[in-house]
Write a protein that binds this DNA or RNA. Sequence first.
DNA 1: TGGCCTTTCTGATCCAGATCAAGTCGGTGT
DNA 2: ACACCGACTTGATCTGGATCAGAAAGGCCA
Lengths: 249, 249
Amino acid sequence: MGFAEVVNTKFSQPVPMPAEGIETVSDDLRALQQHPLFRAFDAVDFARVIRQARRVRLGHHQVLYRQDMPASHFYFVVSGCLRLYRLDASGIDRTLDSLAPGDCFAEVMIYADPARYACYAEALKQSEVLMIPVKAYRALLAENPDYAQHALRHYASRAVSRFHDLEIMTVQNARDRLIRYLVDLLPGGAREGGEVELPLPKCLVASRLAMQPETFSRILAELKASGLVRVNKSRLFIPNPTRLMTLSQ
Amino acid sequence: MGFAEVVNTKFSQPVPMPAEGIETVSDDLRALQQHPLFRAFDAVDFARVIRQARRVRLGHHQVLYRQDMPASHFYFVVSGCLRLYRLDASGIDRTLDSLAPGDCFAEVMIYADPARYACYAEALKQSEVLMIPVKAYRALLAENPDYAQHALRHYASRAVSRFHDLEIMTVQNARDRLIRYLVDLLPGGAREGGEVELPLPKCLVASRLAMQPETFSRILAELKASGLVRVNKSRLFIPNPTRLMTLSQ
DNA sequence: TGGCCTTTCTGATCCAGATCAAGTCGGTGT
DNA sequence: ACACCGACTTGATCTGGATCAGAAAGGCCA
C-alpha cells in the first residue's frame, strides 16, 4: 500500500471490508431519510439501498478507511464522532474535517473516478456508521432523474462549503483563522451570539486550522481575557460575534 | 451591496448583467462541447443551451462578478485568463483559483441555494467568456437523467480537487506548499519531470498559497539555486519532481 | 484511593516568514 | 530615446507562531 507503515501505531487496523460488528439495519435511520441525499427517495427505493447497507461499530481511534484505498462505499454517521485527515511522508497528520451524527461523508466517491478515498477516516470515540455501497445508490439515481437533482443540489452545497473552508485557510493570521472558524460554528452565523460546541478536541481543531495546539490555546486564552469568548471545556460562549469579527480586521 | 466600496479602485466595474460586447455565439465552442458538463449533450440540446448563452469580452482587470452577487449564470473560458478571489474587511484580497481557456467556473451555481457567487471573478488580461444561464442548463438536466449523471461526475471530480487544495493549504510550511503546488501543475504529476507554466503572475500565485510575494520569490530562488527548478519567466522546468518532493519532507 | 496517561495550559527560546525599503528589469506610451 | 509603471527581486529588520520544556487538570483503571 505504501503508507500502512506511517500510520501511528496506536491506531487500530482499518475495518476489513465488510467485517464483524455487522448487524441488520434497524430504525434509527429516520435521520438518514432526512438527509439531502435521501430525502427525495420513496419508501421502496430507500429500503432498497438500506438493505444493501451495513452498520459498522468503530472503537476509539479506529480507522474506517485509509487514503488511496479503493472506495466502494460511502458513509452515514449514526452516532459518535469522526474526523477526516491526511498523513504526509513525514508522518504529520492534518485534520481536514470533523463529522457528527447525521453527516454523510465520502459521498463524493459515488461518482469519483478513480474511486479512491482522498484521506483517512477515524473514529474519535465509540461510533457507529452506516456503510452504503456506491453502486446501489448510483443505480437508483440512474433510473430516477428527480433523485439526481437532489444529489446535485447536495454536491453543490458541499462544494460551496469546501470553497469556504479553502477561503479560511488562505487567511495568513492564526488568530483570524480561529475567529472565522468559531463564527462559522455559530448557529446564527455572525448575526447573533450563542454557544458553540467544538466538534473536535482542541488539539485537532488546531490541526484543522493549520496551527499548533499551543498557539490555539494561547489565542483562546487571549480571546477569553478580552471577554470575547467564555470557555467551558469544549463549549464556547460567544456573546458578540460582530465584535469578534472586527478584531480579526 | 455592502462591499462595492472595498473594491480596489483600479478595477473596472463589473459587467452590467447582459452587456455591450455581446455577439452571436459562433464556432470556437468545440472546446465547450468537450467539457465534462456538456460532453453528453446531443447536438440539439447543446444548441439549445448555447442559444441562450452570451459571449462577453473582458478587459485587463475587469471584474466579471462580485462575491455575494445573485448568480444566474455560470461561465466558460473561451480565451484569456481569470482568477477567483475574495476580499475581506481589511481589503486584503486572497486568490482562490486560476482559470484558463476550456475551464468552466461558478458551475456550482447551477444548483446552489442561495445562488450567490462565493467570490470575485476578474480577468487578468483581455479575455472572453461565455455566460450560460443556469436555468437553461438545469432545465435540460431535469429532463435527461443521463446528462445528470455526467454533471454529477463533474461535480465529484471538482469536489476531489477542492479537497486536495484544502489539503495543500493545511501544510504549515511555505516552501512545502509551493512545492506541492508546483508538482500538482506538472502534467505527469510527481512521476516525471517537465515544464510548467504558472497559471497566474507570481504575486498572485503567492496569494493563492497564502504567502507574501517576497517569500515566494525567495523560495523559488532557493529552489533554483539547488538545481531543483529551472526558471524562465513564468515557465518553470522541473527536472526531478521526486527529489523536489523529498525536500518537502 | 492512588497512580498513570492523555489533554491542555503556560513559560522561554528561536526561527520562518512578514514587513519595510530599495533596487532591477522589461514593457508601453509619448 | 526617454520617462514611467508594474512585476519581480534582494536586502535588512522584526515578530508571530513554532518548538521545547514543564506544570496543571482531568479521566480511567487497578
